[in-house]
Simulated assay, not measured.
Amino acid sequence: MRNHGDFPVQGWIKCLVISLLLGLSGCASQPEKVVQEHESAITESTAADPMVVSSSHGEDVIEPTVVGYQPKTFDDPLESINRPIFAFNDVVYRYALIPAAKGYLKVMPEPAQQSVSNFFANIREPLNAINHLAQANGGYMLKSLARFVINSTVGLLGFFDPATAWFDIEEHKSTLGDTLHSYGADYGAYLVLPLLGSSDTRNGFSTIVESVASPLNNITDDPQTLYIQAYGGFHDFAPQAETYEKLSTESEDKYLFFRNLYLEGLLRDEQYKEE
Rank of each mutant, 00 (worst) to 15 (best):
H38Q: 12
H38L: 12
S40A: 15
S40N: 15
S40T: 10
S40H: 06
S40Y: 03
I42N: 01
E44H: 15
E44R: 13
S45T: 09
T46V: 06
A47Q: 14
A48I: 09
D49C: 09
D49K: 10
V52Y: 12
V52A: 14
S54T: 12
G58Q: 07
E59N: 10
V61D: 10
V61M: 13
E63Y: 08
P64D: 09
T65N: 06
V67M: 14
Y69A: 02
P71C: 07
P71I: 00
K72G: 05
T73R: 07
T73V: 05
D75I: 15
D76P: 06
L78E: 04
E79P: 04
I81H: 06
N82L: 03
R83Q: 07
A87G: 02
D90V: 08
D90P: 03
V92H: 01
V92L: 11
R94P: 02
Y95F: 15
Y95N: 11
I98M: 08
I98S: 08
K102Q: 11
Y104Q: 01
Y104T: 02
V107H: 12
M108T: 09
P109T: 05
E110M: 12
A112S: 11
Q113L: 14
S115Q: 14
V116I: 15
N118M: 00
F119N: 02
F119I: 04
F119V: 05
F120C: 03
A121Q: 09
N122Y: 00
I123D: 04
H132P: 02
H132M: 02
L133R: 11
L133I: 10
A134L: 11
Q135K: 11
G138T: 08
G138E: 05
K143F: 06
S144F: 06
S144A: 15
L145M: 10
L145P: 04
I150Y: 04
I150P: 01
N151K: 02
T153K: 04
L156C: 12
L156N: 12
L157S: 12
F159L: 11
F159A: 01
W166I: 13
W166E: 13
F167E: 02
D168A: 14
I169K: 02
I169C: 03
I169D: 00
E171F: 08
K173E: 12
L176M: 07
L176S: 01
D178I: 04
T179W: 03
T179A: 05
L180F: 10
S182F: 13
A185C: 13
